[in-house]
Design a protein around this nucleic acid. Structure first.
Lengths: 141, 141
DNA sequence: ACTGTTTTTATTCATATTTTTATATATGCT
DNA sequence: AGCATATATAAAAATATGAATAAAAACAGT
C-alpha cells in the first residue's frame, strides 16, 4: 500500500522522507478525525487568557472561581474559556459537590505537539522502524 | 519554576514588532491590538487549510499559485492564508521575478513547541509513543 | 507599449468569537 | 425551608474571521 519511497522521493534527505511519511499518514488517517481535533486544540491555545489558565493549572488543580480570581474579566467569561479548553480536551472538569475542579489533560497537548514534531528535527529517530510500522499499519486496513 | 506564563515570554524582537505594525498600519490601531507571538502562531495553526499548506511546504518550497492549486477555494483566499502564516512567522515569502516563493520558517513552530514542552514530559519523541498514537488514531475511525 | 501571468487588495457577506450583564441552576449549610 | 456559594446559560453588542468576486498592481516576454 505504501508507494515505493525511492521512486517517489528520488533525491530527498531522510528527514524529508520522514516528513513526507508523516504527511502521508496524516492525510490518510487524520484528515477527518484529527483535523477537527487539531482545530479545537490550536484555536483554544490561541487565546492568551486560556494559555494563562493552562499555566496556572500546571501548578495545581483549581476550582472555577479560583481560576477566575486573578483575571480582570467576569466569571462568566472565564467559565466559557474553560468550556473551550474542555472541548479541546486540554483540561478535564470534575464536579465534586458544588465545586467544579479543573485539571490539565495532557493528551490533547501531546497530540498537537506530535503534529508539530513533523516540522522539527528527527535525526535521532529510527526512520526504518517507523517506515516499517506505518507500512504494517496501512496494509492491515 | 513556572516557565509557561506569557509574561515570561517576551521573545518578540523590536524589529519584528515593527514589521507587523508596518504590515497592518492601515487596519490596526497600534496601542491595543498587539497580539503576542504565540497568539499569532497558534491562531495560524488553528485552520486546517493553513496546516495543509505547511505540510505541503515540508516537501518543497512553492509558488503561491502552486500552493493554491490543490485547494477548492480561490487564489485570493489562499493568498490571505499565506499572509496569516507569514505574519505568524511560520513561513517566509521571497519574491523572485513575478513569482513569490513560500518556504517554511521553523522558528515560530519551535517557539510554540517550546512553550508546549512545559506541559508534558514529551521532551523527545519516542517511537513507541508515536506508534501507539498512530494506532489509536487509526482505530478511532 | 501591449499582453498574459502572478499575486495582492477592496468590497461584501455570513458566521464565529469574546465579553458583559442579568438570570438561572445546583449544591451545601443552618 | 431559606440562604449563601459555585457555576452555567441567555441575550446582546463589538469585533474578528473566512470566503467569493472583482479590480488592481507588479512583472516578463514579445
Amino acid at each position: 500500500m505504501l508507494p515505493c519511497i525511492d521512486s517517489l522521493y528520488p533525491k530527498i534527505s531522510p528527514k524529508l522522507i520522514f516528513n513526507h511519511l508523516v504527511d502521508d499518514w496524516m492525510h490518510i488517517s487524520i484528515s477527518r478525525t484529527m483535523a477537527s481535533s487539531l482545530d479545537l486544540i490550536f484555536s483554544a491555545l490561541a487565546d492568551p487568557t486560556r494559555r494563562q489558565i493552562l499555566s496556572m493549572l500546571l501548578e495545581d488543580d483549581m476550582a472555577v472561581t479560583d481560576v477566575a480570581e486573578p483575571f480582570e474579566m467576569s466569571l462568566a467569561a472565564i467559565s466559557k474559556h474553560l468550556r473551550v479548553l474542555t472541548n479541546a480536551r486540554l483540561i478535564q472538569q470534575e464536579r465534586r459537590g458544588r465545586v467544579k475542579w479543573c485539571k490539565l489533560d495532557p493528551d490533547a497537548m501531546q497530540e498537537a505537539w506530535t503534529w508539530m514534531q513533523g516540522f522539527g528535527q528527527f535525526d535521532h529517530l529510527d526512520l526504518d522502524g517507523l517506515e516499517a510500522y506505518i507500512e504494517r499499519t496501512l496494509q492491515s486496513e
